[in-house]
Design a binder for these strands. Structure first.
Length: 572
RNA sequence: GCGCCCGUAGCUCAGUUGGAUAGAGCAUCGGAUUUCUAAUCCGACGGUCCCAGGUUCGAAUCCUGGCGGGCGCACCA
């Protein structure tokens, strides 16, 4: 439907089919690589496999094959360099078709329809009621939201679900704490903080006061019984207070959810799901609890608990209920759980249970694990008060951005708005920068840095391009382009051409950092290009060619940032 | 004890399904602005790719065994 970066794809396809025709290699049995150095060419084909097949010398084979390919390829030069064949696309062809393709598609460049008709469910954010969002929750939220946008771009139907932690035995504790000390704190003006205080106090005192534990257990049992009484009323109020707070943060991060379903949503599903699992014949009673043994997957794999000996359910029960509910609702192509790596075992167990039940869609369920956010002094702990609150991080980043704007661009019109975009963008970008499995140590100076490999660096690059484009005379970009002005810019052009492939791979891998890394590399290339290539005030043909390149680069930066959930201010 | 994840420059990280001389940012040092935003650019410095075997024409990448760090291991989520 769209020419989705076809420019570069078409060049690659013609090289590949020429190689197939000349060698008899199976399509898909090889792929082109990037040469070690850009001067060597745009694409490379190593001849080691051919040499093995034909029992020949790779360098000789490369030499002969290059001659044959040159005879059949048009607009593409093949050169043998040792055991490699390097291909170079005609510079004018490259610029004309690629820039034309990007500029005609605009914000749709990189999109495709490959996911049409398929649904991807993404479980993301999932903060716990009555606890403040920490920088740890940021990870699930921004990684999950980026994964959802990547799938949107590929034409999938996506459903982002915020699986709020609004159920479980800790609510018994919370209700007990509110009942006992609720009058001593201010629940109205700063509810999360007040609730946190109660939560911490509960844990400090439960060891020495057994009546507290009894009260908590009784409260959760009442909550799970479905009784519309005092406990449920308190629980409901806590939920409402917390959700209002969360919503503020989500708005700043530009994250919205298609569904906000707490664990409590599955209250009515718990009985039936347990029944269903029992019917499938995989459960057993053990020490008064209902479990699914997972010994067949390994002697040391712990069983999955569905129901405690006191009759109440667990996390796993609710997640199983949610999984079945989602399948019945969406028949998803993928169901992604963007949840920290500390819960690997839990999701492994979940998948094992589904396997034992013989559920055919089990492989579509994926745990998208990410590394823990740690403080230099150790693991974050809400109970110990060792946390960095997300609001504080955003506020400090925005304040820092405002300070820099005041220094560098005091005349900026909407400076408060831009400071918000830059500060929040820096925080989001920083969190999406590394491979998601890696643990992150939270260091303020790193989060508040706006130079080098940072979000503001990419935003700045975008603003610079826009500045050049808006200063150009109207119509200058439409003059007959002199493509020779871009003869030395092939590297940048090829990078722009990679964008659709970057989106596709990042979505498949559920790895937003592939986009982040790509954007950093692209921004670096653009900044070097700007320093080396004057755009305005050149001969009309030169100017048109360079303006087109600047425009295409601007389009890709903007789109890439949008996929990550980072704003691209017009000036900063 | 067992299982899973991670280990690349002083620090933080990239490194395409195994391919050519392992690359960025930060930090340090030295340069660049009469001209499109210096939140920038150019250069220098900086490496036993944790260690030891193995597979391969070829290994940072795959396999095995160690070491170091993180996380987890039935009635929490």
């Amino acid at each position: 439907m769209f020419a989705q970066g076809r420019a570069v794809q078409e060049f690659i396809a013609s090289i590949e089919s020429a190689i197939i025709a000349a060698t008899g290699l199976e399509p898909g049995s090889f792929s082109l690589e990037s040469p070690r150095k850009a001067e060597l060419g745009d694409f490379a084909f190593p001849c080691f496999l051919l040499a093995k097949r034909d029992k020949g010398n790779p360098a000789q084979i490369a030499g002969k094959l290059a001659e044959q390919l040159n005879a059949s390829l048009e607009g593409i030069q093949a050169t043998a360099t040792g055991p490699y064949i390097n291909f170079q696309i005609d510079r004018s062809d490259l610029a004309r078709s690629l820039l034309g393709s990007i500029r005609s598609q605009g914000a749709l460049y990189g999109n495709s329809e490959e996911g049409r008709g398929q649904t991807v469910v993404i479980d993301l954010s999932s903060p716990n009621i009555a606890k403040p969002m920490s920088v740890g929750h940021l990870r699930s939220t921004v990684i999950g939201a980026a994964i959802q946008r990547l799938h949107d771009a590929l034409g999938y139907q996506t459903v982002g679900i915020n699986h709020i932690g609004d159920w479980g035995s800790q609510f018994g504790k919370l209700v007990a704490a509110v009942d006992r000390w609720g009058g001593e704190v201010d629940l109205e003006s700063d509810p999360i903080k007040a609730l946190l205080e109660l939560y911490v106090r509960y844990h400090n005192e439960e060891a020495t006061d057994p009546s507290l534990q009894d009260a908590a257990r009784a409260a959760f049992q009442e909550l799970e019984s479905g009784k519309e009484g005092h406990v449920r009323a308190v629980w409901r109020r806590l939920t409402e207070l917390s959700m209002q707070e969360f919503q503020r943060t989500y708005e700043r991060l530009h994250v919205h959810f298609d569904e906000i379903r707490g664990e409590s949503f599955y209250e009515d599903h718990l009985g039936p799901i347990i029944e269903r699992i029992v019917q499938s014949g995989v459960t057993e009673e053990s020490e008064g609890a209902l479990i699914v043994s997972l010994k067949e997957f390994g002697e040391n794999v712990p069983p999955c608990l569905l129901r405690k000996s006191d009759g109440t359910t667990l996390y796993a029960t609710r997640d199983l209920a949610a999984a079945f509910h989602r399948w019945e609702l969406y028949h998803f192509a993928r169901c992604l759980y963007v949840v920290g790596g500390d819960q690997r075992l839990h999701f492994q167990q979940l998948k094992y249970v589904l396997q034992r039940m013989g559920v055919e869609w089990e492989p579509k369920v994926e745990h998208i694990a990410f590394g823990m956010m740690r403080l230099p002094e150790g693991k974050m702990s809400t109970r110990k008060g060792q946390v960095v609150f997300l609001e504080d991080v955003l506020d400090r980043a925005v304040a820092e951005a405002a300070k820099i704007i005041a220094e560098k661009n005091p005349e900026l019109a909407n400076s408060a708005e831009v400071a918000e975009q830059v500060g929040v963008g820096a925080v989001i970008f920083n969190d999406l920068k590394r491979e998601r499995v890696k643990d992150i140590e939270f260091v303020w100076s790193e989060v508040l840095s706006f130079e080098g490999d940072t979000g503001p660096y990419v935003q700045y690059t975008h603003a610079r391009l826009l500045s050049i484009l808006t200063k150009a005379d109207a119509g200058a970009i439409d003059a007959a382009p002199d493509w020779s002005a871009l003869a030395d810019s092939a590297g940048l052009l090829l990078t722009l051409g990679q964008f659709p492939g970057v989106i596709r791979k990042a979505a498949t891998h559920a790895e937003p950092s592939e986009v982040t890394q790509y954007l950093l590399g692209l921004a670096r290339e653009i900044n070097s290009w700007i320093a080396a290539n004057r755009v305005l005030g050149q001969a009309p043909g030169v100017m048109a060619a360079r303006l087109q390149l600047a425009d295409a680069a601007r389009i890709v930066l903007h789109k890439g940032l949008a996929l990550l959930g980072v704003s691209a201010p017009e000036s900063m």
